[in-house]
Write a protein that binds this DNA or RNA. Structure first.
Lengths: 211, 211
DNA sequence: GCCTGTGAAGCTATTCACAGCT
DNA sequence: AGCTGTGAATAGCTTCACAGGC
């Protein structure tokens, strides 16, 4: 199985390749893709080893074929349904962000307890009450959930998702979640991210001041 | 200098410690902090080596002192100003998210080109026109910028930020940004994150089905 | 010549394991 | 007994460097 880093980069490569395809580029070299992705050419070639599609030394990679190869590796055979829980600012931002982006991964419903939101369409996505969560997950065989609820509710929501059958969670709440073995949790903590950037910005500034 | 991972975790530890402090906990052991953060105790102790505050074998770490130690390591001596560019859904989400969260890192202004938004208060943050960007950055000595503009504008915005003196960028646009040496760029790509989670969710599911 | 694919080397991050302390 | 701090070992990731191909 491929490493987490590799899978993330493959997803990025595909996006870049789709842009290139839209720009009518027919083939591409590892060093070109590397520049776009901000990595080394060796990294690109190493990552592509897992997808099992080989380029040619003369033409590099065929853009269309490489996209197809990555898709075969990354995507499920059938389109998958995803749910989002927590229709606050961040939830709405993510709905807007994903709307019609990846046909293979569709947010089929959003959940919130606010009666003002329930049973409305939010950015093209149906907003349901939390009580319908299990039903929707089972109906659509949902394996992946996005959590954008306030910090205090995040763990309970994660538990509910897992109980209903979800085995991948993308958590935006600023708290690490516990989940049983066999459930993959990705935590994106924006507060942490900002502090990290601020810290390294400061280091760089001092570095550049030195000489 | 500490590694990127370590800095990220220190930020997380601090948040968890602040929660513990609010719960009146006076001291804490590495294994307790480890459970909360979802890492190993050895990892916690190794990370804490860089902050230069030592716990005691009997009492573990003094919560208040450890928070102080991490702050001394992570934070600038004076509060720092941050700017956000792109007041769309995601920009608003982030403004809401950070509002009054970390007094040491304050988003002093948000920027957008939409005349509808300019000169208004968005979630307690002043929204300015892009033409004022340089002025605000110089006035507040801003070193860190958050980019939440659409993909097509992200690179131009990054260039403008860097030219004005920013040396740390937190990029939420779904495209890797180029920046000169000495500028730290953190890229959070939510589309990639979701595809990654979906991929590993699928693997886990298959794993658990096997035996 | 300049590309790909890949074994081997190098580097970074994490974990082990234990001395030292109370 | 059970903790911390840390050298040493391990695991994981990235880059080097080169054979093989056109």
């Amino acid at each position: 199985m491929a490493s987490q880093r590799t899978v993330g980069r493959l997803s990025l490569y595909r996006q870049l390749l789709l842009d290139q395809q839209a720009a009518k580029k027919g083939n591409i070299y590892s060093h070109q893709l590397a520049v776009m992705a901000g990595v080394t050419p060796a990294q690109v070639r190493r990552d592509l080893m897992v997808v099992g599609y080989s380029g040619s030394p003369t033409k590099g990679y065929d853009v269309r074929e490489l996209i197809r190869g990555i898709a075969k590796f990354l995507d499920a055979p059938e389109p998958e349904a995803v749910v989002l829980v927590g229709v606050g600012n961040l939830g709405r931002a993510i709905l807007a962000y994903y709307a019609g982006r990846r046909p293979n991964l569709k947010i089929v419903a959003a959940f919130d307890n606010d009666p003002q939101k329930v049973d409305r369409l939010v950015l093209g996505c149906r907003c349901c009450s939390m009580s319908q969560l299990d039903e929707v997950i089972q109906q659509h065989q949902v394996k992946t959930g996005i959590i954008t609820v306030p910090v205090g509710e995040a763990q309970a929501v994660a538990d509910q998702l897992v109980r209903a059958g979800v085995c991948g969670v993308l958590n935006f709440a600023p708290v690490p979640l516990w989940a049983p073995e066999g459930v993959f949790v990705e935590h994106i903590d924006m507060a942490v991210a900002l502090e990290k950037v601020a810290y390294f910005a400061r280091q760089r500034k001092q570095e550049t001041v030195k000489p």
